[in-house]
Amino acid sequence: MKVTVTVNGGEVAAEVADRTLLVHFLRDVAGLTATNVGCDTSSCGACTVLLDGRSVKSCTVLAAQADGRQVTTVEGLSSGSEELHPVQQAFRAEHGLQCGFCTPGMVMASVSLLAENPSPTEDEVRSALEGNLCRCTGYHNIVRAVLAAASERRPS
């Protein structure tokens, strides 16, 4: 079937098998490999992207379901490695990543959280990230990064 998705502002159209997962559409068709696959049970969140502005696990969404919709991946958050989005910047400043595999999903989940709740408490951050697994950081610096990004964005 033909699927057309607006990915990071640009249109990507392709003939794909009906069962194509959105994550594979992004990786194999759109050529955006930052979004990773970390499990096969929707447990780990490594594949988290924004679909029409809300976070989804792209391993559990068919490409067909994204037809005609907007997808944002971590590649679409900033114009390049020099100008980071505030959440990316906070992850860097607070050492919120180690191996980097969960990071794109973790950043997108954090962006989604802050869009819904610009001033979360530590407990709210932990709760919002429950569906995103990290095996390296113990979450300590990820939580600090999200809180730092929130206070950075809060008008003083």
């Binding site: 900033s78 490695s81 020099e82 990316q88 992850f91």
Partner: peptide, 8 residues
């Protein structure tokens, strides 16, 4: 980190 955070 800049690479891991932007293009993965």
């Amino acid at each position: 980190d800049p690479r891991l955070l932007t293009v993965g």
